[in-house]
Amino acid sequence: MYAFDLARPADLASAVTSLQTEGAQALSGGQTLIPVLKQRLSQPSVLVDLSGIDSMKGIRRAGEFLIIGGGTTHGTVAGSAEVASAIPAIASLASKIGDPQVRNRGTIGGSVANNDPAACYPSAVIALGATVETNKREIAAEDFFQGLYTTSLEEGEIVTAVKFPIPVAATYQKFEQPASRFSLTSVFLAKMGDGSVRVGVTGAGADGVFRHAGLEAALSADFSAAAVDGVAVDAGMMSNDLHATPEYRAHLVKVMTKRAIAALS
């Protein structure tokens, strides 16, 4: 990697100040950024390490919401009794990310801010209609994710927390890419309090994470595997690589959705 300065702010205000430096880059768990730096694909002047900001860590329930601090590691989420009782699907999702080393460093804030098209968390954020909280504002999930590795975060804006509405039931069905073990095609399915069913898909979309309107409409009317069979999933919107064709990904969307239904039935 290229040389850089390292800032380790203890509070959010200091972090925001540090990020105003030309070429500054926020660092959370570093599970994406550090490999990128090692390959010299990025050359920040200052890395602003957010891991010392205690206010960004932790998990709490507030009424009908589960709020997870942006600096909370996957390992903490996976092992949290609060998460397990409020939205066990999120604990399960976190437990399937990477390996123990990754889970002990990687954070939810880093994951959603990076918006890797194969990351796990974004599917839960959009399926549950969560709100992404930053040092400046609250952003609805639908507005937050803007395509591959792109979000509505502004320069220097920090994800401080993600606020999840607590569903009636939810499940995350992950199908792994054989090499990276990221999502090849995974589905986060939630039954909400208003009776609607929401389906977030990650790993598959050519433009990153998405909700599938057809599946949601069909399952909101008839929560069954048969309802999935009647829905067309368009391969044209799926990505293509060494590990999966668009057709295979489109097929897996339906398979994983059916498995989600089975898990909740």
Partner: peptide
């Protein structure tokens, strides 16, 4: 080389 890293070259775990 398309599978030039462990992100695309699958090692047995």
């Amino acid at each position: 080389l398309v599978s030039g890293s462990f992100m695309d070259y699958a090692m047995p775990l």
